[in-house]
Write a protein that binds this DNA or RNA. Sequence first.
DNA 1: CCAATAGTGGACAGAGTGTCTACAAACCTT
DNA 2: AAGGTTTGTAGACACTCTGTCCACTATTGG
Lengths: 207, 207
Amino acid sequence: MPPEAGDRRVRRTRRLLRDALVSLSLERGYATVTVEDITERADLGRATFYKHYTDKDDLLDRVVTDLLDELQDRLRPLVQASEVGFTGKPALEIFRHADDERDAYRMILRGEGDGRALRQFTRAQTEATAEVFRARAEHEGVTPRISVDVLARAWVGEQLAVLSWWLEEDPRPMPPEDATRMLLDLSLRGRYWANGFEGEPPVPDPA
Amino acid sequence: MPPEAGDRRVRRTRRLLRDALVSLSLERGYATVTVEDITERADLGRATFYKHYTDKDDLLDRVVTDLLDELQDRLRPLVQASEVGFTGKPALEIFRHADDERDAYRMILRGEGDGRALRQFTRAQTEATAEVFRARAEHEGVTPRISVDVLARAWVGEQLAVLSWWLEEDPRPMPPEDATRMLLDLSLRGRYWANGFEGEPPVPDPA
DNA sequence: CCAATAGTGGACAGAGTGTCTACAAACCTT
DNA sequence: AAGGTTTGTAGACACTCTGTCCACTATTGG
C-alpha cells in the first residue's frame, strides 16, 4: 500500500527522495549510492524510503516515467502540427524540457542505472518519432528510402548525442533555440554539407 | 601484483572471467551479477577473481579497454586513407568488429555499468572522429559550418544508434556492408532525403 | 625436474539490504 | 479545533555480498 499522493507530506517526501537520488547519482554514480545516502541527503528516515519505493531501481524508474509523462504532455500539441513539415518544434521542446530538468536529463543520458533509464527514454522517443515519420510519409505521399524504424533510431541517437553535449557543457554553450537550429540543419541536410562541402555527396561503397 | 599474462593459466582465466561477465550482464543486467556468479560460471574459485581484478568494475573497464585497443588496431590503417574522402571504410570496420564481438558490444551499448563503458567507448570514437574531420577540412581547404566536436558527437551518436539496432535485432537483419551503406547514405545526405523527400530541405526556424 | 607462480577453499569483519515493530508527528475532514 | 487516519521514525533483525587473508595444492615455463 504505497502512500497517497494527495497528502502534502507524501509530495514533499517523494520530491526530496527524487532530488537526492539525482544529485547523488551525478556526484558519485548511481551504483555507489546507497538507500541510506539518499535518505540522509533528503533528511528522512531510511524506513520512510521503503514506504514509497521497493528499492533504488524502483525510484529511478518512477523518476524516468514521470519525466516522460511530462515531456509527452508538452509534445502532444506540437506533434500534430509537425506531421506536415519539418518544423523542428518538437526537437526544440525537448531541449527546453531538458533545460528545465537539467540534472534529471544528465543522469539519464549518462546511462545511470545500467542504461535502463536511457533505454526507456530512447524507446519512448523512437516509437513516437517513427509514428510521426510514418504519418508524414502517408500524408505527403512519399516513400521513405530507409526503414522508418531505423530512421527514427538514427535521428533520436543524433538528437540525444547533441542534447547530452549541450547539457554537459559548462557554461551552457547556447540557448535551446540555437542548439535546435544547429541540430536540425545538420540532420536534415546531412554531414557532407555540415562539414563544409558543397554539391552532391559521394556515393560511398565501403565493401 | 597482478599475475603475468604470458602464463597459459592466466590467459585462460581472464578469458573465462571476461566471457562470464559479458554473458551474465546480458542475461540479468550488470548490477545484479555478483563476483561469485561470475566465478561460478567461469568455473573458478572466487579468490582467483581477486588475483586478477580489484572488483567487478575493474573487470568491465579492462574488457572495454581491450576492445577499444583491438578496434583502434583495425581502424588505424583505414583512417589515414579516409582523411581524403568520405569512404565509409572506418564505419564498415566498426560494424565488422561488432559482428565479431557481438555480445561485448551489446553489453557496452546497452549502458551496463551505469554507462561508464559506453561513455568510454563514445569518448574514444568521438575524439578520433573529430580528428579525422579536422584533418579532412584542412586538407580540402573547407570550413565546417558547425563545430567539429559537435559534428563528431552527432555522427557517433547516429552511428551507435544504428549499430545497436543492428546488433539487437534477431536474426541479423543484413550484412555489415549493407548496414554501413544505409547508415552512410542517411548520414551524408540527411534525413530529408532519407524520408523520401526531394529537392532542398526547408530551413526550419523553431523559435 | 623444480622453483616460481597461479588457483583453491574456507574464514573473517564490515557494509548494505529489505522487513518488521511500536511509537510519534502531521494531515485532512468535519 | 478535535479526532480518526495516515505518514514518518528509530532500532533491531537475518541475510547477502564484498574484499582480504591464510595455508595448501596444481600447473607452468625454463
